[in-house]
Nucleic acid binder design. Structure first.
Ligand SMILES: [Zn+2]
Ligand SMILES: [Zn+2]
Ligand SMILES: [Zn+2]
Ligand SMILES: [Zn+2]
Lengths: 133, 133
DNA sequence: AACGCATTGTTATATTATAACATTATTATT
DNA sequence: AATAATAATGTTATAATATAACAATGCGTT
């Protein structure tokens, strides 16, 4: 039996490190450009690292923006229940950590007969700063 | 004062008509291919029609799939509160019409000081059919 | 050593979406 | 009817996002 990976590979570390330092969502090609000095030369190297990091929950994809952000919830071991707030003016993105909301959505059922194992929620609006402009 | 548009243009009608008949999300380039016989020759013609149709709520974009689906909720006049269920096996997508859910999310507030004017929620799982395979 | 599997490296290509500019259509105002 | 404002169209080119395909390497297990 091969164990599940419990460490990060070289490229995965490089990409995660860069995304964590950003504190905001980054585009894949912006990541690529910035890690080229560390040896990652091709889009696929970045996308493969991102795929794995998303899979294990270290990084989330902001679908409406095609951008990637580091997870801020220590309890977010896998990316199966994510919620974000997005400012439509300055594009600031924050991961929402609200246990009521996550409970509500994780337990959500409708009459479709479908069992949901995952969700992604994106709220849009104006952040505090932009609202007061 | 110019009034808000209350009809659809030629290209908008063609695109909406095609998407409504599909009953499932369509990719922009698949739409393009299929409406070429009706005179829309370039991607921009399709994207512009889609943009407008999304804006007025006739069509929603499934962000995680980069696909477009016709609105099934008569009360969905604008695309500011959308929820979908997506089968990860057969890719069937259904627009969720659940007033409790939409109330809960429309009234959601957290301590970020942000006022949310819009949301998009995507649930993932296995549909009835795929679950029983 | 031999195997299985994840990761890497590399080149090419597919897919999704927009920029820029000229033109035409529609509606509102004078 | 002329003018102006707004929206839609047509067209070419290009930008931005993402994956296919294949060969090679690294690493833990047997
Ligand atoms: Zn998270
Ligand atoms: Zn803002
Ligand atoms: Zn709708
Ligand atoms: Zn299914």
């Amino acid at each position: 039996m091969v164990q599940k990976q419990e460490y990060l590979s070289k490229n995965q570390k490089i990409v995660l490190d860069h995304v964590e330092k950003a504190n905001q969502p980054l585009k894949a090609y912006s990541i690529l450009y910035n890690v080229q000095k560390k040896g990652l030369k091709a889009p696929l190297q970045v996308y493969r690292a991102l795929d794995k990091l998303v899979e294990i929950g270290k990084i989330h994809k902001i679908e409406s923006r095609n951008a990637f952000v580091a997870c801020k919830n220590s309890n977010c071991v896998v990316s199966n229940a994510t919620a974000f707030s997005i400012c439509e003016s300055c594009e600031k993105v924050t991961e929402i950590n609200n246990s009521k909301l996550s409970k509500y959505l994780s337990n959500f059922e409708d009459n479709s007969g479908m069992k949901y194992s995952k969700y992604n929620l994106e709220f849009f609006g104006l952040c505090k700063k932009c609202k007061n402009k």
